[in-house]
Design a protein around this nucleic acid. Structure first.
Lengths: 232, 232
DNA sequence: GAGAATTTTGACCAATTGGAAAAACGTTAG
DNA sequence: CTAACGTTTTTCCAATTGGTCAAAATTCTC
């Protein structure tokens, strides 16, 4: 039992200490399998709707065995969210104030859309957490996330003041990029249903990319005098 | 028990028959209270994560009493979804092929954004259902919804062919309107967290409205020659 | 106000859930 | 080999869950 105690605090990550990487090869393997299975289950059922049994089955192990690696359900979820946010914000982090605004934004959109295509479960996990009021995530939102967005919104505003970009609220610009790209992961069923079986290959992401490029480039490019149809 | 039987099939809506409006005043009242409470709970926890006890408590009645009006949990959810889709699609239904494209789309966006502001729970309920793969909704998506969207996409394409609108994929145009507007309901926590306590009044919806108007009007207005920054 | 119909309650149930304990099993260093 | 350690399984538990049922309380109709 001492062994268990020792392992648990190492494996699961103590309450106070940062979650350490697992030591042995087998620990890393199992933990990864659990996290992958949990991502699957949490992302489709949300935290409350997901059961440990489901996760254990998806990971191909027994419930107590799973609980040996993550002593509580919440621990798994926390680890997923923590790992997620990092990768999720990477594209925004890479937006470079020194770069050209239009290509920077264009490539930000493209990368976000690629993430929606390649990591839909991560997107859904995050969406689920937001829908539920982010009970286990508010801190990160108001800390890490807000800090980063504030910074990048400043960058965008700078571009606008230099006349390199049409003037618009930078925060809502970022929101609209999040919304339009993540939509293809979060509302995948709906998108598929509407597009029907014909247009349904992975080609829908290419169509989306083309459309979003047009929307945002014309919506944001400078040098268009206020058109005949826009009364701001 | 005969009485109960009779009431149940009337109140809950039989399997085969369309759900009838409740007869007595008291039935209507209670059912509405239940549906309202259920909307609250389902929209934040999803179907699996919501419990009848929670709903009953939110509705201010005992669980068996609630089950007297809706014999199963799924029945409540079904009713909510069914009622929802109608109101949810109303703005799109009103988009008039005979009208002027730009104002039509502009007012579609405005109305959708108002719905996100005034009915966030409905938006979240729907989002939750989509995230979970729409197990109880696919039929409607592939039926009612697809039909309507196909029709309106046709209308939009018509406008584009008449040169009244910039050429773009009408389906993805509709998706992007859904995504950007519903985002303010579904990701409300995130939006609030990022905007911070200062900019946090209901004014954020006005900002969003202004921003989205600009984005979509410039992104879609005709008559702009392909700008210097867009290589399609 | 009596009688019927409707509504509400309290007690109960079987299944599921998150989790604990400890014994059994493997693995590996000495 | 064997003792120590790490891993897995079996068994178990209390709480929660969706739902039933009959009796009690209330409301409605005449």
């Amino acid at each position: 039992m001492l062994a268990q105690e020792a392992v648990r605090s190492d494996v699961g990550g103590g309450v106070a200490e940062a979650p350490r990487r697992p030591r042995t090869r087998i620990q890393r393997e199992k933990q990864d399998r659990i996290l992958d299975a949990a991502l699957e289950v949490f992302s489709t059922h949300g935290f409350r709707g997901a059961t440990i049994d489901q996760i254990a089955e998806a990971a191909g192990m027994s419930k107590p065995n799973l609980l040996y690696y993550f002593p509580r359900k919440e621990e798994i979820h926390k680890r997923l969210i923590a790992g997620l946010l990092d990768m999720w914000l990477a594209p925004l982090r890479e937006m470079d104030a020194a770069g050209d605004p239009i290509p920077e934004i264009r490539s930000y959109i493209r990368r976000k859309l690629e993430m929606a295509r390649d990591f839909p479960r991560e997107s859904r996990l995050f969406a689920n957490e937001m829908l539920q009021g982010a009970p286990r995530t508010v801190d990160m939102l108001e800390g890490e996330l807000k800090t980063l967005v504030d910074e990048k919104a400043g960058v965008i505003r700078g571009w606008m003041e230099q006349g390199k970009l049409s003037r618009a609220d930078p925060y809502h610009l970022i929101f609209s990029i999040w919304a339009t790209t993540q939509h293809y992961a979060d509302f995948d069923v709906q998108v598929r249903a509407v597009l029907g079986p014909n247009r349904n290959g992975e080609g829908r992401f290419d169509d989306a990319a083309r459309y979003l490029e047009q929307l945002f480039m014309f919506g944001l490019a400078p040098s268009h005098s206020a058109g005949p149809n826009f009364r701001g």
